[in-house]
Structure formats: C-alpha cells, structure tokens
Amino acid sequence: MLGTIIIYGFINSSILVLVAMGFNLTFGISGVANFAYGAIYIFSGFLTWIFLNSLGINYLLSIFLTFVCTFLLGYLIYRFILLRVRGLSLSEVMATFGLGLAIMELFRYFDFVGVKYSLPVFIDGSVPIFGNYVDYQRLIIGIIAVAFAVAFYFFIHYSKVGLAFRAIAQDDVTALTLGIDPDRIGAISLALGSSLAAMAAIVILPLGTISVENGYEVLIDALAVCIVGGLGSSVGVIVAGLVIGYVQTLTANFFEPRWMILVSLAAMALVLVIKPSGLFGKQKELEERV
C-alpha cells in the first residue's frame, strides 16, 4: 500500500508539475496569465494525432513538428494579440481566455470527439517497483519531469535567454537599459510556455484519450499548482505539485478517485484565503512593475 502511494503519488505529482511549468514560466517572466494554456495543451495533442494519423508522419517527427508549431503559436499569440494590450492585466486575461475558448470549441465543432483520438504510448509494457507494476509511460512521465526540472534550472541560470528571463522578471526597465528587449523576451516566454504545454500533452495524453475537456482540466490544475506554489516561483511549482499530487493520490486511495479534483480546488481556495501570494510567491510591489 505504502509503495503504491509513493510511486503513484510521485507520478501524479510529476504530471501536475509538467502541466504547471509552462503556465508558470510565462507568468513569472512576462506577467501574462496565459488562459489559453489548456487550449494549447489539447491543440498539441490533436496536432500530433493529425500529423501521425491523417498525414502518416512518423511519431518522433510528429512530436518534433508539434513542438515547432506550438512554439510559433505562442509567439504569434504574443505578437499579434497580447502586444496590443500589454500591461492591461484584465485585457490580457480576457484575450487569452477568449482565444482558448475559441480553440477548444473549434475542436469540438469539428467533431474531434471519441476514443480514436488517442496517442500511442512511447514504450509498451511495465516494470515492477516496490511490488507494483508501473507501466513505462508513467515511468517516462516521472523521468521527464525530473530531467526537465534540472535542465530548466541550468537553462534559466546559465543561458543568455535564461538570464534575460531572470532579468525581465525582476526589473524590466533595468533590463531594457542593458539591451534586453522586453517584448522579444515576452514573446519567447509565451512561445516556450506553449512548447512546455506541448511537452506535457505529448507525454501525458497517451495515458488516455484526447478530449476538449482535458483543456479545461489542465487549466484548472495549472492554476491550482501555480496559485498554491506562488505565481512565478519555480520552486513553488515543484513543492505545490508534490503536495497536491500526493494528497490527491491519498484521496483516491482512501476515499474515491472522483474527489481528486476537489483537492486542487480546495488547496487553491485555502491558499487564496490564508496566503494569497502562495507558498513561495512574492507579490511584486506596484512600484517595481511601473
């Protein structure tokens, strides 16, 4: 029993961390809450499916093409939609939320519904860990989440773009005086955030079918993890992902799986009441953003 909880709790946490990272990255750097995030998630799933099944492209290449397309999609959303309303938070939220709804409902309108819309697992089979058989896909999710967290740390601290991200997140005017263009970095942050949504979708979706509802659920999960962890904090995302992930697994084990969604909603509500800035969040002073 304990083994089951440790393993599945960890995999569940990995899923939450993967899902939340992209949303968190964009918000932490450019301050844009990308409410089209869930739509981009299912867009990546359906796109990979189309490349794979309708166009007959091999799986690996389909995945690569999906990454390129979502990166471009994020970049274009920033350049053509968000740039006009930059700095007006409510307009940013409305623009991305509206766009997200449009994308998701278009998929429903064009009848992307049913069990045939599913992605193949990377490797078939399972492996025993602590007496539990864990399928390779879930194992891959755990490995990718850990590998990604490590790679992300090095990217942010040692690459030029990563350092520019850190600079813009702290003080965009000072960054500008050093030649870092906030609009370019903002667009890249949205593009990368979208690619991270694609990465999450491609490793997680093979566990089930791709449906429009996934988009809404993913947005709720990403929001819950980010709000609990503190918007914009990478450490916060990992800690909140682990906490919510394990509590969800415990809930599913001791109560019923259908109550799992309540855990993230309750955690979000609790944090908003007790510490609105989240576990690791720092509410930026108004003067810092001006």
Binding site: H157, K160, L163, A164, R166, A167, A175, L178, I180
Partner: peptide
C-alpha cells in the same frame, strides 16, 4: 549573475 545578465 547581475554582471552576466549585463553582458546580454
């Protein structure tokens, strides 16, 4: 890190 950022 501040100095490395400045070398953008």
């Amino acid at each position: 890190e501040n100095l490395r950022i400045a070398a953008y």
